[in-house]
Design a protein around this nucleic acid. Sequence first.
DNA 1: GGGGTGACCCAGT
DNA 2: TACTGGGCCACCC
Length: 103
Amino acid sequence: MATVTPQEYVEEVLRLVESIPEGRVMSYGAVADALADRSGRNSARQVGTIMARHGGGVPWHRVVTSAGRMPPGHEQEARQRLLGEGVPLKGDHVDMARASWMP
DNA sequence: GGGGTGACCCAGT
DNA sequence: TACTGGGCCACCC
C-alpha cells in the first residue's frame, strides 16, 4: 500500500502541526491518529521523537501529551507561548478538555 | 551485530 | 487525586 518514507512521515507530521489553529493544541497520540497511524500508541512515541528532532520549524508548543503536559526542557517556554495564543491553561498543564483540537 | 534510550499512552493501585 | 509499571517501535552508539 502507501509506501511512505520516514521523511515523508516527518513532513506529514510537521504539516499537521502547522495546521493546528491558534489557541488549540493536539496530543502526540492525536497527531498519530490523525495520520491514520493505527500502528498503535507506539506512533505517539515516534511523533514525539520526530518533533524533538524536526520540530524546530513548527509550532511544537501546540503539541502536548494527552495529559496536557509539555515537553521537558521547554515547559516554561511552551506555557508562555500557549498562554500568549489564548490556549486555556490549567495551572502548569493545558486544559485538553477545551484546547484539544482535531482536524 | 547487540543493547539502551525516549518531546508517549493506558490501566491499575 | 497522584503515582507506578508495562508495552510498543524507531533511532543512536
